[in-house]
Simulated assay, not measured.
Amino acid sequence: MVSLHDLRMEFRAGPDPVTALDGVTADLPAGSFTAVMGPSGSGKSTLLHCAAGLEQPTSGEVVLDGVRLGELDETGLTVLRRERVGFVFQAFNLISSLNAAQNVALPARLAGRRVNEVELAAALTRVGLSDRARHRPVELSGGQQQRVAIARALFTRPAVLFADEPTGALDGPTSRHILALLRELVDEHGQTVVMVTHDPVAAAIADQVMLLADGRLIDRLEAASAATIAARMASVEATC
């Protein structure tokens, strides 16, 4: 579903460039759950942004759902992000004056699309919020707000759902519910999910874990336990 080939990203910070990604190559299969981990400054969020078409890499190639992102202009990237990509972030980014249903439907309305009320109701049911459709964000818990954000991201039926620290602002039990929902989307609906996280427990629900350090992909763990991931992360951080 997502292929990264020799991805490099450099930023200018004073007289010398800073390398955020240094030749990352990886395949993220359709219908899989990938967690991206690494120490602070390792390039996790930059990788996510390049893979999702939010930023253009300095060099290398990203192919998302068969589309070569480097061949698209800004209009093409905007259309791709709107139609094939879903985003969930640590901040829920809900509009406070809109209720849950209106927040879920907002991207479609902004794109000038007619909103199917049956599909809208189904999206909220899918995340367990069928009884909260008319509630505004202030009337919802943090976990419920994140579920609205997930429903909004999935409403356009994206090829890939990108999540950047989706449980970072939530307590333990609520985090587990959100992670279970993401796992369910992969297992029962074939959704492709790519998640940046710093939490080994969260990463352990993924099919594979990509470990970054200094902008490079240094390891890939498959079906690893939280203890295994934590131990590997500790060894990485000790060398950084």
Rank of each mutant, 00 (worst) to 15 (best):
D73R: 07
D73V: 08
F162D: 00
G142A: 02
R134E: 13
P137Q: 11
F162M: 02
R82L: 11
S96F: 13
L124S: 01
L106W: 12
N116F: 09
I218P: 09
L21M: 12
E237F: 01
T192A: 04
A234V: 09
V127W: 04
V62I: 15
R220P: 14
A20K: 07
G86S: 07
A121S: 08
A121Q: 10
V67Y: 00
G143V: 02
S42F: 03
V201I: 15
R220E: 15
A101V: 04
A223P: 02
G215L: 10
H49C: 05
N116L: 03
V85K: 01
A180W: 04
M1P: 09
P137S: 03
T167E: 05
A26W: 05
A123L: 06
G86K: 04
G128W: 07
P200T: 10
P173D: 15
I218Y: 10
A234M: 08
E188L: 15
Q90W: 05
S141H: 00
G70H: 06
I218A: 05
L124C: 09
S59L: 02
C50E: 10
A224T: 06
Q145R: 15
A51S: 12
A101R: 00
V194G: 08
R147Y: 06
L4H: 04
V104L: 10
L28K: 02
G70Q: 08
R114L: 11
G112S: 13
A227L: 08
V201G: 07
A149S: 08
Q146E: 10
D6L: 05
A206C: 10
V24I: 15
P17S: 09
V127H: 01
S32D: 10
T167F: 12
G70T: 08
R232V: 04
